[in-house]
Amino acid sequence: MAVINPYQTYQDNSVNTATPAELTLMLYNGCIKFIGQAKKAISEKNIEEKHINISKAQNIINELIVTLNMDIDISTEMKRLYDFINQRLIEANIKNELKLLEEAEGFVIEFRDTWKEVIIINRKRQHAQGGLV
């Protein structure tokens, strides 16, 4: 008989019921988490763990890139910024430099915080208009 992990079930349900905006927020949070784990791995000189976590962060940045709506003007700028973050992650992976990871992390944190504000503003607007939150 299979053992059911309630935490995994909760996570699966969270992802399956999240709005596109909430999924983007989850991606930002995941990227920040993996960069943090990579920073820890560098400080512990654990090269394999560093590489794994930087690769996960890069995968998230790549997902953010492919989901951009290029019909919207700001998407071109966002793609450039995501490419810059990706380049910093690559360099950090090659050079084992915390400074490069911290630079990438700073951008992702800023994007995440801005995205949170957008979600809050949209929810308030929908609520004011009598829509569902």
Rank of each mutant, 00 (worst) to 15 (best):
N13V: 15
G130P: 02
T19Q: 06
I32E: 06
Y28Q: 04
V3D: 14
T17F: 13
L132F: 12
Q129V: 05
P6K: 03
Q126K: 15
I4W: 09
A21V: 09
D12E: 15
I120M: 12
I54E: 00
S75D: 02
Q58F: 06
Q129K: 15
L132M: 14
K45F: 11
L23K: 03
N13L: 15
I61D: 06
T24R: 13
L101Y: 06
E97V: 01
V66D: 05
T9A: 15
Q129G: 00
R125E: 14
A104Q: 10
T24Q: 14
L81N: 05
I109S: 11
I54G: 03
N86R: 00
W115Y: 03
D83Y: 07
Y28D: 04
N62M: 09
Q8Y: 06
Q11R: 15
I47W: 13
R123V: 07
N46R: 05
I121R: 14
M70Q: 05
I94N: 04
N46Q: 08
I4P: 02
D12I: 15
N62T: 11
S75C: 06
Q129M: 13
A57C: 11
R123A: 13
E77R: 02
E103D: 13
N86Q: 07
N53L: 05
L98T: 06
Y28A: 03
A41G: 03
V108S: 09
Q58G: 04
F111R: 02
N5M: 01
E77L: 06
N62G: 03
N16F: 02
M78H: 11
R88K: 15
I85W: 03
Q87G: 08
A128V: 00
I94L: 11
G130H: 00
A41E: 04
K50M: 05
K99H: 09
F84I: 00
F107L: 09
I60T: 02
F34R: 09
R88I: 08
Y82M: 02
F107P: 01
V3L: 15
G106S: 12
N53H: 03
D113L: 06
F34W: 02
D113R: 01
N53T: 02
T19I: 07
E63D: 11
A2Q: 12
E91M: 11
M78W: 07
K50D: 09
C31Y: 01
I60H: 10
Q11L: 13
K45C: 03
L100A: 07
E103N: 12
K56W: 01
I94F: 03
I47A: 11
D73F: 07
E97R: 12
Q58V: 11
K40D: 13
